[in-house]
Computed example of a mutant assay.
Amino acid sequence: MIYPVIWQDNQAILIDQTRLPETSTTIAIDSYNAMANAIKTMIVRGAPAIGVAAGYGMYLGAREIETENKTQFLQHLEEIAQHLRQTRPTAVNLFWAIDRQLQTAHQHSGNVAEIKATLLETAQQIQAEDVATCQAIGDHGLTALPQTPEHLTILTHCNAGALATAGYGTALGVVRSLWRENRLQRVYADETRPRLQGAKLTAWECVQEGIPVTVISDNMSAHCMQQGLIHA
């Protein structure tokens, strides 16, 4: 399984998506400023994955706050939240995860140390919940696909895979479930200009898991459908 964000050794480890597919490397994030930069520069991208990153970013920021005064702590946490909000204003999950962490902190009855510990737990919950949601999407998506032929060809656009989520993927999660059930013949991945997420990311994910994939230019999609090469 591909996970774009993991929590390990008291820091967040991100797959650097700006370097895929030529180089597969990770970056260790141990501060909220570093996480904000990773979101802003698209080291991590895709709304669900950004939400997971923001959840950990809120904890990392909380960890840096030195005061034991709860009121002052919450004020500083609000400032950290505002900084993270400005990184990707179009990512809905970014705001949702930040607000969830703020709600967790404000509603907590414990001291600052206990709030910090709970913020880490909440970040991990956000991640686990998204993986479970993606797996459910993948399995439910199977029922929406044609039942014939036995082995299907699937057209994808952009990247809605594990890299864009906490893991498994949404649209590509359906592809993974199809592959698991031995019902997938091939993925045709639109290159997806101008950033080429299909060619760089979707194709890379498929290759990592042995899923047959062919990258096509965006303007080939209609031709492939006209020729009957695409089932869904």
Rank of each mutant, 00 (worst) to 15 (best):
residue 79 E to P: 00
residue 61 G to M: 10
residue 163 L to G: 11
residue 7 W to E: 07
residue 202 T to R: 10
residue 115 I to N: 05
residue 95 F to H: 06
residue 47 A to C: 07
residue 128 A to F: 02
residue 129 E to L: 13
residue 27 I to S: 08
residue 96 W to D: 01
residue 121 E to A: 15
residue 171 A to K: 05
residue 12 A to P: 02
residue 215 V to W: 02
residue 27 I to L: 15
residue 27 I to W: 00
residue 78 E to G: 00
residue 76 H to K: 15
residue 39 I to C: 03
residue 202 T to S: 11
residue 103 Q to N: 15
residue 193 R to K: 13
residue 185 Q to M: 01
residue 209 E to Q: 13
residue 146 P to N: 09
residue 163 L to T: 06
residue 184 L to Y: 06
residue 10 N to S: 15
residue 13 I to A: 01
residue 45 R to W: 03
residue 154 I to A: 05
residue 134 C to R: 06
residue 115 I to M: 04
residue 22 E to P: 00
residue 125 Q to H: 11
residue 45 R to I: 08
residue 133 T to C: 11
residue 140 H to E: 13
residue 137 I to K: 02
residue 44 V to I: 12
residue 50 I to D: 01
residue 181 E to G: 00
residue 229 L to K: 14
residue 196 L to P: 01
residue 45 R to E: 06
residue 193 R to T: 07
residue 147 Q to K: 15
residue 193 R to Q: 13
residue 95 F to V: 12
residue 128 A to H: 02
residue 138 G to D: 02
residue 222 A to Y: 02
residue 139 D to N: 14
residue 37 N to L: 14
residue 225 M to I: 15
residue 98 I to L: 09
residue 158 C to S: 06
residue 45 R to F: 07
residue 183 R to I: 07
residue 214 T to Q: 15
residue 36 A to S: 10
residue 171 A to R: 04
residue 195 R to C: 07
residue 111 N to T: 06
residue 194 P to V: 10
residue 64 E to A: 15
residue 85 R to N: 04
residue 121 E to W: 00
residue 59 Y to H: 13
residue 166 A to S: 13
residue 96 W to M: 10
residue 16 D to F: 11
residue 104 T to R: 11
residue 115 I to R: 09
residue 12 A to D: 02
residue 61 G to Q: 08
residue 226 Q to K: 14
residue 56 Y to F: 15
residue 58 M to F: 05
residue 220 M to P: 01
residue 179 W to D: 04
residue 113 A to C: 01
residue 42 M to S: 04
residue 124 Q to P: 02
residue 131 V to T: 03
residue 145 L to G: 08
residue 63 R to M: 13
residue 112 V to H: 07
residue 118 T to H: 11
residue 164 A to G: 11
residue 202 T to G: 06
residue 204 W to Y: 13
residue 72 Q to N: 13
residue 199 A to Q: 09
residue 68 E to I: 11
residue 37 N to H: 10
residue 26 T to N: 08
residue 9 D to W: 02
residue 162 A to N: 05
residue 147 Q to Y: 00
residue 161 G to E: 01
residue 174 V to A: 09
residue 113 A to Y: 02
residue 216 I to H: 04
residue 172 L to T: 04
residue 51 G to F: 02
residue 55 G to D: 00
residue 121 E to K: 14
residue 20 L to S: 04
residue 197 Q to T: 07
residue 163 L to D: 10
residue 69 N to M: 08
residue 167 G to I: 09
residue 156 T to W: 04
residue 187 V to M: 09
residue 35 M to L: 12
